[in-house]
Simulated scan of single mutants.
Amino acid sequence: EGYGLTEASPVTHCNPIYGRRKPCIGIPLPDTEARIVDLETGEKELPVGEIGELAVRGPQVMSGYWNMPEETEMVLKPDGWLLTGDIAKMDEDGYFYIVDRKKEMILSGGYNIYPREIEEVLYAHPKVKEVAAVGVPDEYKGEVPKVFIVLKEGETATEEEIIAYCRENLAKYKVPKYVEFRKELPKTMVGKILRRVLAEEERKKMAEAG
């Protein structure tokens, strides 16, 4: 397993071919630096185990977006550190773990909620085949979690059942406020669920209702 992005192509991290391997994106490649920084400014380096934004620096990092200086300034620091937009953490051995996408993080009543945390809990539910969690607008909290669920063939479930299951397995502020059952979820050509499409649908729906 490894990790890379268009702005730092092709790879910045991978698990060692020889030696210790972990279920994560691995360690930085030679001549590549990586660190976890705070989500607010992208300047403060966070200690081992804390969740923040993954920043990388190395020869594979771009010099900037073509003719897009403002966009470049948002992600590329003057000292060469690239803010990847991925939320991650580093363990005591220097291995990095991707937690979620920064753009898809749910900000609810002052709390940061990572959709993947909710999804991983619900994937353990015996009736759930597929799930996606997104943030939807809320008058009081800014955003609240909503989950879209595809049930396994022949199974039935209620919104109350899913929320009760989440209450047993998640912190109170992470429990979804809404549950919607669907026959299928929007996906990319390679089968990755598109949370942003679901979030856009919700925003459009609320705008039309308002």
Rank of each mutant, 00 (worst) to 15 (best):
A34E: 03
N169G: 07
M62E: 00
L5T: 00
H13W: 06
E53N: 08
R20H: 14
A157S: 15
A55W: 10
E1R: 14
E119Y: 14
E71V: 02
R35E: 12
P10H: 02
I17D: 12
E139T: 08
A88T: 12
A124G: 04
V121M: 05
C166A: 13
K22Q: 01
K141L: 15
M90F: 09
F148R: 05
K77C: 03
Q60I: 07
P16D: 00
I118W: 09
L76Q: 07
Q60R: 07
S108H: 10
Y114P: 04
G2C: 13
V121W: 04
A132P: 14
G109V: 13
G142D: 06
P23H: 00
E43V: 15
K141I: 00
E161I: 14
I149L: 08
R116W: 12
R203I: 02
E180N: 01
V37N: 08
G80I: 07
V150C: 09
T32E: 00
K103C: 04
K146P: 00
L46W: 12
A88C: 15
G52E: 09
R101F: 15
G42Y: 09
G191I: 14
K177S: 10
R57V: 01
P145C: 06
K152M: 10
Y95V: 12
V56I: 15
Y18W: 13
T156E: 14
I87Q: 05
K172C: 03
V48W: 10
P137A: 00
V61C: 03
E168K: 15
R167M: 13
V56Q: 01
V75P: 10
R195Q: 02
G80S: 06
I17Y: 14
S63Q: 03
A55R: 08
F96L: 11
E200A: 12
D91G: 13
A8C: 12
L198N: 00
E40S: 13
